[in-house]
Amino acid sequence: MNKTGQRILIVCDSSRSLMDFRGKLIEQLVQHHEVYVFTPRITQQSVREKLALLKVGVYENELDGSNVSVFSDIRYIIQLYKLIKKLRPDVFFPYTFKPVIYGTVLAKLCRVKKITPMLTGLGYNFTPNAKKGLLSNITRKLLKFSLMNNRRLRIIFQNKDDYQTLLQHKILTAKHKVAVVNGSGVDLEHYEYAPPDIKNVSFLMISRLINAKGIYEYYEAARNIRLQHPNIQFKLIGAYGSNVDTISNELYSKIKSGKTITYLGEVDDVRPHIKDASVVVLPSYYGEGIPRCLLESMAMGRAIITSDSVGCRETIESALAANGFLVPVKNVTELVSKMKFYLSNSNAISSNGVNGLAFARKKFDVNLVNAEMLKIMQLN
């Protein structure tokens, strides 16, 4: 372990995200600092090997970020408290809800010098359907308590809408120190440009199978289009599991049948599937940070169709250099219309894809985002 520089503790709710979303940042941090991670159990051997190669200190837990379990959460809080006391980090960097809520409070109690929680989207808890739910009310109260202003605290957002939302809910005040970065960024060397197939147009959606991601809307749009164009392929990648907003068994059965959509489940590498697709679709109203799947698709030169909703709208450039379309939330008719546009204007698939790559280079390059992250953590 590198013993120079500062000691940094990264806390997450998914081991997959460590290298997928934070890999490049960790690579930069370990060059001059000691880096430790507190993560749910690592199930991918490649992640474990990469962290070992980088000499990152790994501590694992049994947290399930998607489910509610009081006893599990209490055990998690105790483990994290003991770890912070043991490591005494100079910088505490949690991301996603449970690590942010629990970790930020504990870091304050342990008097960590720099606390930089990142909210990678506000998720289901701030969608219209969730506003009156007991769980969402509890989450918002816990978030307010956790993020009470402190001179050692600086909160990181992935879009300005999320910051405004927390101001409106009086979870934050104008006195809070905040920073906004362009999502998690995308590695433009890893996600290389590949010309899209415009002769055999196909569509791809990459998402967990929860309602607010727009799974139903994507399925209905596919069903509608296949009535007239039965040979058009629609693919779906993403995990199906327990979540407060998981799609119904009925919709899942329809998807699994393969009659309308080809369901590929969860995959380790999305690149071959993006390469095979002509257009990538995400009709989400979930409360995204900035959807990583759209950034990856833009980097590979794919036109995108997404919702005019928080986080998603950040990925569409102005009409002067269009890289895709925004559609109203839950509007299947408009989603179908934009899909049909690409079926009738296949050359736009290529030009919009090239524009998307240029937009990704300008705004979402992971090296640009990580430079901002280092400034926020005062490590540059």
Rank of each mutant, 00 (worst) to 15 (best):
Met1Glu: 11
Lys3Cys: 09
Lys3Ile: 11
Arg7His: 13
Asp13Ser: 15
Asp13Met: 05
Met19Val: 15
Lys24Val: 06
Gln28Pro: 05
Val30Met: 07
Glu34Lys: 14
Tyr36Asn: 15
Tyr36Cys: 15
Pro40Asp: 10
Ser46Asn: 12
Leu51Ala: 09
Ala52Gln: 13
Gly57Gln: 11
Val58Met: 08
Tyr59His: 13
Asn61Leu: 02
Asp64Tyr: 02
Ser66Arg: 11
Val68Phe: 10
Tyr76Asn: 07
Ile77Glu: 08
Ile78Val: 15
Leu83Trp: 02
Ile84Cys: 11
Leu87Phe: 01
Arg88Gly: 07
Thr96Met: 05
Thr96Pro: 00
Leu106Cys: 03
Cys110Glu: 04
Cys110Met: 06
Cys110Asp: 01
Arg111His: 13
Thr116Ile: 13
Leu122Thr: 07
Asn125Lys: 11
Phe126Trp: 09
Leu143Glu: 03
Phe145Val: 14
Asn149Cys: 03
Asn150Tyr: 05
Ile156Arg: 07
Tyr163Gly: 10
Thr165Gln: 09
Ile171Leu: 08
Lys175Met: 09
His190Lys: 13
Ala194Tyr: 09
Lys199Ile: 00
Ala212Asp: 05
Glu217Ala: 03
Tyr219Cys: 00
Arg223Pro: 00
Ile225Glu: 01
Arg226Trp: 13
Phe234Tyr: 12
Ile237Phe: 07
Ile237Tyr: 07
Leu251Trp: 08
Ile255Glu: 00
Ile255Phe: 00
Ile261Ser: 10
Ile261Glu: 12
Asp269Leu: 00
Asp269Val: 01
Pro272His: 09
Leu294Ser: 03
Ala303Pro: 01
Ser307Phe: 02
Thr315Ala: 10
Ile316Ser: 03
Thr333Arg: 12
Val336Leu: 04
Lys340Pro: 01
Phe341Cys: 04
Leu343Tyr: 03
Asn345Glu: 11
Val354Cys: 06
Val354Asp: 04
Asn355Glu: 14
Ala360Cys: 11
Lys362Leu: 14
Asn367Lys: 15
Asn367Glu: 14
Ile376Met: 08
Gln378Tyr: 00
